[in-house]
């Protein structure tokens, strides 16, 4: 069974989702402002902050594939297993070769 790509019109989608996503946008803006007020803000943060800023750039691209593209931007692109998982946990962004 194929589904329509969307059952609702653009105005209907905006009626349903605009306010909650406006609030999310303000949360992100406030988060970025908070980071800039923090001690050490001038040093650019760590790999997570850089990954976050890269994802924000993807947000403004058209094409209907933003969610997958952002997921890919946060992901470990390598294929080799790591030697040990002891003491490690996921943090949401791939550290890569960064300290």
């Amino acid at each position: 069974m194929d589904l329509p790509k969307s059952t609702l019109t653009t105005p209907e989608l905006l009626d349903l989702y605009f306010l909650e996503n406006r609030a999310r946008l303000l949360e992100i803006a406030s988060f970025l402002d908070r980071l800039e007020r923090s001690a050490g803000a001038g040093e650019g943060g760590d790999f997570r902050q850089r990954a976050f800023m890269e994802a924000l750039e993807i947000l403004s691209r058209p094409g209907g594939d933003r969610t997958r593209a952002i997921q890919m931007s946060f992901s470990d692109p390598t294929s080799e297993p790591i030697a040990s998982a002891v003491g490690l946990k996921a943090c949401g962004a791939w550290q890569g070769g960064e300290p």
């Binding site: 997921q71 890919m72 946060f74 992901s75 470990d76 692109p77 390598t78 294929s79 297993p81 946990k89 996921a90 943090c91 949401g92 962004a93 791939w94």
Partner: peptide, 13 residues
């Protein structure tokens, strides 16, 4: 499948 940044690689493996 793994969490977050490890999901893609783990799914492929």
């Amino acid at each position: 499948t793994p969490h977050l940044e490890d999901k893609l690689k783990g799914t492929r493996i």
